[in-house]
Each structure stands twice: as C-alpha cells, then as structure tokens.
C-alpha cells in the first residue's frame, strides 16, 4: 500500500477504511510484567491496537514504552501514550528514537493530567510543550527528518538518516469547555500533523454528534481518522463518579437511572457500551472506536463480539 507514513498495522487498517477498534492497557504500579501479559491476552485479536497509558492521572506506573514493548512481545500492537507533563523536548525525542528502534510504531500525544491529581503532588511539572506542539515535533522528526532544534536525525556527518517513522495521534475532548473552541483545537491538532484522533469517552451522544457535525463542516473528518472513545460503566458508583468528579466528561442522568434500575449493573453497563458503539458507528466521519475498559480488560472480548466487531480484519 502506498502513501503510508509508518509501518503501523493500525495505520494500514485505517488507510483501508476498516472500522477500527483500539483498546487500552494501563501498565502496573509495580515492576510486574505478568499483569501486562495477562491484559494483553484479553485484547489480542479483539482489538487492532492498544493504547499504553503514560502514568495516567499522574500516578507512577511502569513506563509506557517498556509496557508497550512487553505488549508487542505478546502480539498486541501498542499505541504509546506520551504526555507533556513529565519530560522536556530532550527526553521525549530521545524516548521516541528508542521506541521506534524497539519496534513501536504508534504514539498518542497528550498534554497529561496535572500532577496535583496523582500520588506525587509535590513534584515539579515540565510542560515544555503542549500536546499540539508535541504532535508537530513528532511530525517534523518523521517527515522533515529533523529534531526540534533543526538538526538532522543522524548519528554523524556520514551516518545515514534514520528517522522514527511514527503514526501520530492526538486526543480530543468534545465535552470540555469552551465548547466553541473544541473544534478549533481539533483543527489545530490536524494542522500540527495528527494522523488519528481518539476522543474522550462519549456518553453525551447529542453533544458528540454536534461536535462531529462542526468537524464535518470544516472537512476535518477527511483529513484525520477520528476514533470515538467509549468506556463501559462497571457500576452506578463509577457512573456517578464520572459525572461528578471527572472534568471534561458529561454523563447524562438517564444512564445512571438505567444502571440503578438494572439487577446486574455490570451487565447493563456492557449493554449500554455495546449500544453506544453501534450508534457511534453510524455517525459519518467516525473511523473507529477507542474502547477504554478501565481495569476491566477481561470484558473487552465480550463487548467487541456483541458489538459485531469480530473477527478483526487483517491487512497485508
């Protein structure tokens, strides 16, 4: 296939206009690799790629590159998340070279949760750049074959240029404020060089559809592959927590009522998730779903199957 930017299987599927499914895998809060292997086992063959989170909610976990490498050994294609919170441009570029050399092909660029939310609230943050500048930096590394400082990516004057050919992603949150700025920000991410977008979990379908409409009006869905985020509710408590405590997530009350009325809350949570995936699939410009089953990876096979997304396609 021509015109590909990386050697990512995930990119190939998107380029072939397959409706893709990505999963999420949170590395362990220890040096225990068996957790990753176990979670990868649930996801292998059920999703096309798996996001490996980067110290999400600012809690120390195994590095996303290390965990992603283990996932890759287990036959899962990782999407390495990189946040701007903990590393400056020197460290991030260095890590990207290393990630590519190991065989990692997808990177999702994030701003990162503020450290005050995590388990080291007294630490210093970095924010040398924002996620949009990070996207641009990776694009310049891949396409211009240059570091952020302008130097060529080569080990010496006579050494070959070996650039990290990464498939570059960014996140979008259609639910945060100011709402009018959200599509502008999406456009800026695309202008910076994002190849794919994964959104925050969609519960407020009406607002998401409005955001997609604004994106389509600007033709953005043709410039970037948009994957809609979904997260199954495990309980009423979790739904309420997402509604009340997580900034930038909007959970309509009827989901909470529906879960409250259900006998088996977890099963109902999965029912809701399956319905959401089916509804999202019908929206013009949605190229796939990003299934974030937070610490619930073992239920992913069931969700993907019931949503009619199995077997996963393969692309040569």
């Amino acid at each position: 296939m021509s015109g590909l930017k990386s050697e990512s299987n995930f990119e190939k599927l998107l380029a072939a206009n397959q409706f893709v499914v990505t999963g999420e895998l949170g590395p362990p809060k220890s040096a225990d690799s068996t957790v990753i292997r176990e979670k990868a086992g649930y996801l292998k063959g059920r999703v096309d790629a798996v996001n490996i989170t980067d110290n999400q909610t600012a809690i120390v976990r195994m590095s996303s590159i290390a965990a992603g490498t283990i996932a890759l050994q287990e036959g899962v294609e990782p999407v390495i998340q990189i946040t701007c919170r903990d590393r400056n441009r020197i460290a991030i570029q260095s890590d990207v070279l290393g990630a590519y050399a190991i065989g990692l092909r997808n990177i999702l660029c994030l701003t990162g949760d503020h450290q005050t939310f995590g388990n080291h609230p007294t630490s210093k943050n970095v924010y040398d750049m924002d996620s949009i500048q990070l996207v641009r930096m990776l694009k310049d590394m891949r396409d211009e074959k240059r570091f952020a400082c302008g130097d060529e990516i080569r080990n010496g004057k006579n050494a070959p240029i070996v650039e990290p050919r990464i498939f570059i992603g960014a996140a979008a949150n259609p639910f945060a404020d100011p709402f009018e700025f959200r599509v502008i920000r999406l456009a800026k991410k695309i202008a910076a060089g994002a190849d794919f977008i994964q959104t925050q979990c969609v519960y407020d379908m009406a607002r998401f559809k409005e955001w997609m409409k604004q994106a389509r009006n600007k033709g953005l869905h043709e410039k970037v592959k948009i994957l809609a985020g979904v997260t199954p509710f495990k309980s009423v408590g979790m739904a309420k927590y997402m509604r009340d405590k997580v900034a930038g997530i909007s959970v309509p009350d009827y989901y909470i009522e529906r879960l409250s009325a259900a006998e088996d809350k977890a099963a109902e949570g999965i029912n809701i998730c399956v319905e959401q995936i089916k509804e999202l699939r019908e929206i013009e410009g949605v190229a796939g779903v990003h299934l974030m089953a937070i610490e619930w990876e073992r239920r992913v096979p069931e969700i993907v199957e019931r949503a009619g997304l199995l077997p996963r396609p393969s692309v040569k």
Partner: peptide, 21 residues
C-alpha cells in the same frame, strides 16, 4: 495551570480549572 499555548486542555469546565475548580 499547564502553561498551554494552543488552547485549553480537557480539564476546563464552566470557566474553571480542574486543578482547583
């Protein structure tokens, strides 16, 4: 709170910052 130069992060809600709403 994050010194972002290209727009708000996802933690902006009702005009307030999630770091201390």
């Amino acid at each position: 709170s994050k010194s972002l130069l290209n727009g708000p992060c996802g933690g902006s809600q009702n005009g307030m910052c999630e770091v201390d709403p």
